Lab assay of single mutants.
Amino acid sequence: ETFPLDVLVNTAAEDLPRGVDPSRKENFLSDEDFKAVFGMTRSAFANLPLWKQQNLKKEKGLF
């Protein structure tokens, strides 16, 4: 299941849709939104070091 970017960005855990893991908001973006937000594919993002993934998520309001 995916959700629009505005539902996930800068949203407190208690305000997220049911079933969304607040530590993994990026997994609930569509592939198109994911690429638009991070400028890379999911596989490229997954290959980044964890610290870099976290920094990007913070920068984009998805942490």
Results as ranks from 00 to 15, higher is better:
G19P: 05
R18I: 14
P4F: 03
W51S: 09
F34I: 01
F28W: 14
T11W: 09
D33K: 04
N55A: 14
E59F: 06
A12F: 07
V37H: 05
R24C: 13
T41G: 08
L62V: 06
E59D: 10
V20F: 06
E26Y: 02
L50T: 10
D21R: 03
Q53P: 00
A13P: 15
F3P: 03
S23I: 11
Q54D: 15
K25G: 04
G19D: 08
N10Y: 04
K52S: 10
K25R: 15
A46M: 12
L5W: 08
N47Y: 07
G61M: 03
S43N: 11
K52H: 12
L62E: 03
T2V: 11
A12L: 12
R18E: 13
L5S: 03
E32Q: 11
N55L: 14
D33Y: 03
A13M: 12
F28I: 03
M40E: 00
D31Y: 02
V20S: 05
S23Y: 12
S43L: 13
E14T: 09
N47D: 14
T2M: 09
A46E: 12
A36I: 13
S43W: 12
V7H: 07
K35V: 15
G39V: 02
F63E: 15
A13F: 12
A44Q: 14
K35A: 14
N47H: 13
S30I: 02
L48V: 01
E26D: 04
P22Q: 07
G61A: 02
M40V: 03
V9N: 07
R18T: 13
L8Q: 04
K25P: 08
K58L: 08
N55T: 13
V7E: 08
K58Q: 10
A44C: 10
P4N: 06
L29K: 01
E59Q: 10
K25F: 06
S43T: 15
E32N: 09
A46R: 11
V9A: 10
F28R: 04
P4R: 01
N10C: 13
R18Y: 09
S30F: 01
D33T: 07
F34A: 00
K52P: 00
F28Q: 03
W51M: 08
N10M: 08
E14A: 12
M40W: 01
S23P: 05
D31I: 05
A46K: 12
L62M: 09
S23K: 14
T41H: 07
E32Y: 10
K25W: 04
L50W: 10
E1L: 15
L50A: 12
T41W: 02
K25C: 08
V9R: 13
L48Y: 02
P4Q: 05
K52L: 13
T41P: 08
E32S: 09
P17W: 03
F45A: 00
E1G: 12
T2Q: 08
E32D: 13
F28C: 08
E32L: 10
E59C: 11
L5K: 06
R42P: 06
G61Q: 03
K58I: 14
Q54P: 00
T2S: 09
P17G: 06
K57G: 01
K57H: 02
D31H: 06
G39R: 05
S23G: 13
F34G: 00
F34K: 00
P22A: 11
V9T: 09
D6V: 09
E59M: 09
N47Q: 13
D6I: 09
L50E: 11
A36K: 13
A13T: 14
E32P: 07
A12Q: 10
V20W: 03
F3M: 06
L50R: 09
K25A: 08
E14L: 07
L16V: 06
N10W: 03
A46H: 12
A36M: 14
A36T: 12
T11C: 12
S30L: 02
N10T: 09
S30T: 11
P17H: 05
G61H: 05
D33M: 06
K57I: 09
G61L: 06
D21T: 05
L16S: 06
S23L: 15
K58V: 11
Q54C: 14
W51E: 13
V7F: 15
Q53Y: 00
K52M: 14
P22F: 03
K35Y: 15
L8T: 04
P22W: 02
D33C: 07
A36W: 10
T2I: 10
V9W: 03
Q53A: 02
K57Q: 05
N10K: 09
F45Y: 04
F38T: 01
N27G: 06
W51C: 13
F45G: 00
K60T: 08
L5D: 03
V9L: 12
L50S: 10
S30Q: 02
F63M: 15
P4V: 03
S43E: 14
R42E: 02
K57Y: 07
A44N: 09
F3G: 04
L48S: 01
A46S: 12
D15P: 06
F63R: 08
L5I: 10
K57V: 09
L8E: 04
V37D: 00
A46Y: 14
N55R: 13
W51R: 07
M40Y: 05
L50I: 12
P17Q: 03
E59L: 12
F28N: 07
F38I: 02
V37C: 12
V20T: 05
S43C: 14
E26F: 04
R42N: 02
M40G: 00
V37S: 03
L48H: 01
D33R: 01
K52I: 14
K35C: 13
E1T: 13
P22N: 05
F3V: 07
E32W: 08
V37Q: 02
F28M: 06
L29R: 01
Q54G: 07
A36S: 13
L16N: 04
A46C: 11
G61Y: 03
T11M: 12
N27H: 12
W51K: 08
F45N: 00
E1S: 14
L56K: 04
R42Y: 05
L56I: 11
A46V: 10
F63G: 15
P22L: 04
E14D: 12
R42S: 02
E1C: 15
M40C: 06
F45C: 01
V7P: 03
D31R: 02
D6A: 13
T2N: 06
T11H: 09
N55G: 11
D21E: 06
E26S: 03
F34D: 00
A46F: 11
N27M: 15
Q54N: 14
D31G: 03
V7Q: 11
D31P: 07
L29N: 01
A44R: 08
K57T: 03
L29G: 01
A12N: 13
L29A: 01
L48D: 00
D31V: 05
K25E: 04
L8A: 05
V9S: 07
T2R: 09
F45P: 00
T2A: 08
F45L: 01
G19F: 09
F28K: 03
D15W: 07
R42T: 02
T2D: 03
E59S: 09
Q54I: 15
Q53G: 00
E59A: 11
G61N: 06
A13S: 11
G61D: 05
G39S: 07
K60E: 02
Q53C: 01
K58G: 04
F63P: 07
A12T: 11
K60I: 06
G19W: 11
K60P: 00
L48W: 01
K60W: 03
F63K: 08
D6P: 05
A46G: 11
K60Q: 06
A36C: 11
V37K: 02
P22E: 08
E26I: 06
D15M: 10
A13Q: 11
V37M: 07
D15C: 14
V7L: 15
V9Y: 05
T41R: 02
K57D: 01
L29S: 01
E26Q: 06
V7R: 13
L8H: 03
F28P: 02
T41L: 07
S23E: 14
R18S: 15
K52E: 14
K57M: 08
L56Y: 04
K52Y: 12
A44W: 04
T11K: 12
P4H: 04
L16C: 08
N47C: 15
F63N: 15
L8G: 05
F3Y: 15
E1V: 15
L62I: 10
D15E: 10
G39D: 09
F38Y: 02
E59K: 09
L50F: 12
S30W: 01
D33G: 03
F34N: 00
D15G: 11
V7N: 06
A44Y: 08
V7S: 09
K58F: 10
A12C: 14
M40P: 00
K57P: 00
V9I: 14
P49T: 03
F28A: 08
D21I: 07
W51F: 09
K60F: 07
V9H: 05
P4E: 07
D33S: 06
L5N: 04
A36Q: 15
A46T: 10
K57A: 06
A44M: 12
F3K: 04
A44K: 09
Q53F: 00
A12R: 14
P17I: 04
M40L: 06
F28L: 07
E14W: 01
F45V: 00
L62P: 04
D21A: 04
N47W: 06
